[in-house]
Design a binder for these strands. Sequence first.
DNA 1: CAAAGGTCCTGCTCGC
DNA 2: TGCGAGCAGGACCTTT
Length: 271
Amino acid sequence: MPELPEVETTMRGIEPYIVGETVNKITIRTDKLRWPIPTTIKRLLKGKEILSVERRAKYIFINTDIGSLIVHLGMTGSLRVIEGKTPVQKHEHIDVLFNNGQVMRYKDARKFGAFLWTKDNPHEHDLITRLGPEPLSKAFNAEYLFQTCRNKKVAIKVHIMNQKHVVGIGNIYASEALFKSGISPTKAAHRVSKAKLELLVKESKKTLKAAIKQGGTTLQDYINPDGAPGYFAIKLKVYGKQGLPCPNCAKPIKSKVIGQRNSFYCSGCQK
DNA sequence: CAAAGGTCCTGCTCGC
DNA sequence: TGCGAGCAGGACCTTT
């Protein structure tokens, strides 16, 4: 479900409620998400204080002085802080109860997410070390992207969704950023000009930033049972708009499966 | 029945 | 032929 802006908002949403709090009890109601949930955290984390919260790609790190929880929301996950007595609903798999009576609750219908533990620096975890640069960092720039595209025949959309090259650009924002840059999603990565890649970098950052900014507005409701951020009401130009007129040229928006993901584009504006 | 916003893993193909 | 890299497809799971 969530793309990077939703993960960033989730991180910012839970941070003020859990940093400085002490874990009272952890309840786990399912064996596994993408991977088994380590039951050792029940014992390890009891009485431990949350020191900080970080985001890397779409992973959230919840740090203590003995290690870190590594949380991924998959496609349908959410993480929110609510009153500990709030009744548990379907698909709410994990509760981290704090001494102040509030609980951080993890929900994930499709169980594509992850809830892991590492006693080491989470940035050095196997899942993390191979990730490409953050899309909003300076490391993600035209020159860098151009280098990663060299000799790559895969579709540019598949390329930018590959976390090895850059993290956090999901299916929706990939379609949107390519539209705004005038690049056909099916074009082979090595055939996209450097100038176009520069535009793509710029538009990707712009789109993500705008979404994060919007996400901030949901924070005030965060502690409410229904306050978990859903998919932001960003004005999408092409995603999910097949058949509707292109906002630029009025030609109907097309949809096509590229790399097993549905993709949306305008054949008039994107070359 | 297909598809849904993610991403790891397996196994194939290609080029050296 | 053997090997690694790169890539496509399958897999995970539930809801609509």
